[in-house]
């Protein structure tokens, strides 16, 4: 456990020292600033615009960080041969993968927390104070984090079998498909083709289903998110991440570093 923590904190430190992280945070704050501006010119729906844009900014920039740092977590270590130094220590390959994963999730947690604070500051400025109902927006932030944790799992999985660039492409594709997986299954059912139905049905179950994680619109309109969905999403994310990391470890165990 100590070794996993050391690798996780090392990965976190590396992310913190990456300039790309800061530029993304700056961009996120610019987005929030833009949301205040747009909200102020949207008479009557200021809060709705601010919440939609602010949470979307947190999600998009979190996704960029998850993909761009996640894809390099393993493949960059192999390409630069830094993995040799780690694996020559008493570290198993599973500990290496888990440590790297935990490090990036920690980075995203801190990053999302900073952006969420910025978002609430923007909300407080606009509304001249915060109400209790504003904190129900945190459910959407929690779902964004769960979604990002799955994306990091996907990125680390591809990072174990491919180069950084291909991993980025694959992860982004999976993210996009995952957001439309229900639509893809619907398309298959309406097509009338049995083969297509089977293919889209299989894709629906195999690929991550992100559609239930996007509740930005609901929380912006003040709709309460049922606790069953929170539990279901949490269990789904944990299960999916466990499967992804297990697959990543199995592949990484067989990997040779020529």
């Amino acid at each position: 456990m100590g070794r996993v923590l050391t690798i996780a904190l090392g990965a976190f430190r590396e992310s913190v020292r990456e300039r790309v992280l800061y530029s993304l945070i700056v961009f996120a704050f610019l987005m929030i600033g833009a949301a205040i501006l747009l909200g102020s010119i949207s008479v009557g729906v200021e809060r709705l615009v601010l919440v939609n844009l602010g949470l979307a900014a947190i999600s998009v920039f979190g996704l960029l960080i998850a993909i761009f740092i996640g894809i390099g977590l393993v493949s960059k270590e192999i390409e630069r041969r830094t993995v040799y130094n780690i694996l020559s220590k008493p570290v198993t390959r599973a500990e290496f993968i888990l440590g790297k994963y935990a490090g990036l999730v920690l980075t995203l947690l801190v990053n999302t927390a900073i952006m969420t604070v910025g978002f609430y500051v923007a909300l407080a400025i606009q509304k001249r104070g915060l109400g209790l109902q504003d904190f129900s927006l945190l459910t959407a932030v929690y779902f964004i984090l769960l979604e990002l944790a799955i994306v990091v799992g996907v990125a680390i999985f591809f990072s174990c079998i491919s180069t950084s660039i291909l991993s980025a492409v694959f992860t982004f594709c999976i993210f996009v498909i995952g957001n439309f997986s229900s639509d893809i299954r619907g398309f298959g059912q309406e097509s009338g083709s049995v083969a297509l139905q089977k293919v889209t049905g299989a894709l629906y179950y195999v690929l991550p289903n992100f559609s239930d994680f996007n509740v930005i619109n609901q929380v912006a309109h003040g709709v309460r998110i049922p606790s069953l969905l929170i539990t279901a999403n949490t269990c789904y994310a944990l299960l999916y991440i466990t499967i992804l990391l297990s697959a990543a470890v199995l592949i990484f165990e067989q990997r040779e570093f020529k």
Partner: peptide, 21 residues
């Protein structure tokens, strides 16, 4: 047996380390 690594040290060829450290 990964525990053997407690008693050994290794310098790889053309070593590259985390350069942010």
């Amino acid at each position: 047996d990964v525990a053997v690594h407690y008693s050994v040290g290794y310098l790889p060829e053309h070593p590259y380390f985390y350069d942010h450290l």
